[in-house]
Each structure stands twice: as structure tokens, then as C-alpha cells.
Amino acid sequence: MSILITPETKILIQGITGEFGARHTKLSLDYGTKVVAGVTPGKGGQFFEHGTHRVPIFNSVADAAKATGATVSAIFVPPPFAGDAILECVDAGLDLAVAITEGIPIRDMIRVKRAMAGKPTRLVGPNCPGLVTPGTGKDSFGGCRIGIAPGYIHKKGHVGVVSRSGTLTYEAVFQLTSKNIGQTTCVGIGGDPVNGTSHLDVIKMFNDDPETHGIIMIGEIGGNAEVEAARWIKANCKKPVAGFIAGATAPAGRRMGHAGAIVGGAEDTAAAKIAVFKECGIEVAVTPSDMADALLRAAKAKGVTLS
């Protein structure tokens, strides 16, 4: 098994007719992902065509879900409308909304998150690369790719990856695949300070997933989400976990690209987070080149086979 999505998951794309959404819809279709619907208000009844694929477009998420059985949405709509797009998924009762959009105002996300409290829909993101559950075909073809990650670098297997950063996730996945170690699911939770799914949420799912034998957790400066997850791991997770924190050299008070990556106090520096990782039995990757090796060390220490 995998977490959150499987190769059978039916997905819809909000913003399928925009340049960004269209480009990544094509890549997901090429990867073998079951993209069953698109949503663009005012373009209902049209089709999104790519090769032999003909994806119907609907005016609303509710219409698309009802007609096609889609349970997950990938959101590519521009920032001013993205908060509303997420709420539309909640209203339609989808299982999962994945917000790829970068640059959503924090106030919008505060409201969205409050509105989602107690509702069954889960949000991943915003400002995230999305999720990949690799398939069994060549270059992991046949998997479920939601978002903007490169599908071909993956390989089906037993390692779970969770990260705030896109390219750093790809770096970790590439290292794993190069060592012939596959992945169950790779989750990019996004670099914003207000997001739907935390490191801890994903870690709990990996811990419960029997197919996942080991976990790589990649974090950044800012906030205390990684620390929260590390403490939970110490108390509850028996699986080998490797961790990496980016931003050891970032000066305090400067936002490093991601809205959430900013050192505000003594607790959210890279050094403080790394110290907690070590204290919680997480094998720390010394450099970003060491992520897969760190997990191998952790697995060896626990006598766990990753491949």
C-alpha cells in the first residue's frame, strides 16, 4: 500500500486550462495517472485533449466529482482564487485537496484552515510540489502523480518521504532510486507557514502503513513542525527515520524563499531542530547529499531492510 493516494485514485484538476495546470496535467497523464476531470468555471462541457486522452471539463468541483467519481483535486488556480478553490473541494466532500499554488495570502489560508476544521477533506499544501505514489512500470510509470514533481525519478518500494521543499524532495528521491531503493509515497507539504498537512500528520500515516519500512523527513528553519514530529517519533515510531534540516547558514529574520522559512527565535533555527532530531533517535543527514545514506545507516542500526 501507499498513503493518501494509490495508482487507482481518480483525480481532477482545478485550473486545467491554465498554462501551468495544463502542462502538469499532460505530464500526469503521460505518467499513467488517472486524471478523470478538469474544472474551469465557464468552460464546462469542453474537453482537455492530450494524445489519446480526452478529459471532460466541468464548471464546478461538485459537478466533476459527481460525474466522474474523482476523490482528489490538484489545485493550480492563481493565488487570489486559490483559497476559494480549496473551499470548493471541502464543499464537494473530496477526500483530498492538493494546493500547488504559490503565493496565497496568509489571511486567506487562516480562513480556509478554520473553515476546514472538523470537515472530512484533507488539504496538502499550499505552495507544495504535491504527491507521488510510484507505479510498477518503467521509470515508475503507472503511478499516481499529483502536482509538479518529476515522476520518472521515482521507483516503487518501501520508503516514505515527507518534505516542505520541492527540489530537496527530488534530491532525496533521486538518491534513493539511484541506490535502487524505492518509495511508497513522497509527500511535499509545502513551504508556507499555514498549511493543511503537517510533517507529523504524514509521519503518522507512514508509521501506520505496513508497506513503508523507513522514512525520510526533510525540514527547514522556521516554526516547530519538525520538532513536534520528532518528539512523536521518539515516543511512537519504531521504523528507521532519517532527517535533514535546510537553512543552517540562513541569517535570522530573513525570509529564505519560502514564506515559512524564517528564523524567528532560538527554537526554530536549524541547529535547534537538528539537536532535537538527534535526541529523538533520528539519523541526521550531515549534508543534503547524505539523505539516502543516513536512512541506510538508520535501517542498518534497526536491522530493517529497505528494498
Binding site: S165, G191, A248, T249, T287, P288
Partner: peptide, 15 residues
């Protein structure tokens, strides 16, 4: 390319 990778590139230079 990428904020996380950019930060960790700075880190590895220092390392």
C-alpha cells in the same frame, strides 16, 4: 532552483 535546495546549497558550502 528551489528554496529548500538553495538553502541547503549554502549549508553544504559552509559544511
Amino acid at each position: 532552483n528551489g528554496a529548500g535546495l538553495a538553502m541547503s546549497t549554502m549549508d553544504i558550502i559552509q559544511h
